[in-house]
Computed example of a mutant assay.
Amino acid sequence: MKRLATVVLGAGLVFALAGCDAIQQAQQTADSVSSGVNTATVCVDAIRVAGFTPDSADPQAAVDKAKATGDELTALAAKAGDTTVNQAINDLATTMKATTVQDLASGPAAWLQRKADQVSALTKACSP
């Protein structure tokens, strides 16, 4: 009788552990899907924020807006579960935060091209 109880308990333990493994795998799958959804959401938000176009009529206000946009992008990068997406967002954020009145007054075409290249890299990183 004791032997039967031990076998039953042992079998129950094996099934419980197998169940835990299945639960763990399900949790990992759910986490992976959740991470993908989070990255997709971050991508949509980052591309929306990256749509910022400076107002040439008020260069200082444009610089202030670019820096605020850079801060917003940095916060989004911290939420990205994908390192490629994170890097693309951070590169764009760095450009935005480093924007000066000089960039917008004397070299707006170069600044806009750099930004466009980084938005393109972000869009590519966000594409599956």
Results as ranks from 00 to 15, higher is better:
Ala57Gln: 11
Val85Met: 02
Phe15Cys: 01
Thr123Cys: 05
Asp31Tyr: 04
Ala26Ile: 12
Ala121His: 05
Met1Thr: 15
Ser32Glu: 11
Ile23Gln: 05
Ala61Asn: 12
Cys20Ser: 04
Leu122Lys: 04
Asp103His: 04
Ala105Glu: 07
Val7Lys: 05
Ala88Ser: 03
Ile47Trp: 04
Ala121Leu: 03
Ala110Asp: 15
Val44His: 08
Thr41Ala: 08
Leu112Tyr: 13
Gln24Ile: 05
Ala125Asn: 01
Asp58Ser: 12
Thr53Met: 00
Ser106Phe: 15
Leu122Asn: 05
Gln87Ile: 05
Ala80Phe: 09
Lys2Leu: 14
Ser120Lys: 07
Ala50Phe: 05
Ser106Asn: 13
Lys67Ile: 15
Gln87Phe: 10
Val8Ala: 12
Gly12Leu: 02
Ala40His: 11
Arg114Gln: 06
Glu72Met: 09
Lys115Ala: 10
Ala30Glu: 11
Asp117Val: 02
Lys115Tyr: 11
Ser120Gln: 03
Val101Ile: 14
Gln113Asn: 10
Met96Pro: 04
Met96Ile: 04
Lys79Trp: 06
Pro54Trp: 06
Ala5Phe: 12
Thr69Gly: 05
Gln60Phe: 14
Asp58Gln: 10
Ala110Ser: 14
Ala22Pro: 01
Ala22Arg: 03
Ala80Leu: 03
Ser56Gln: 09
Thr99Arg: 00
Leu104Ala: 11
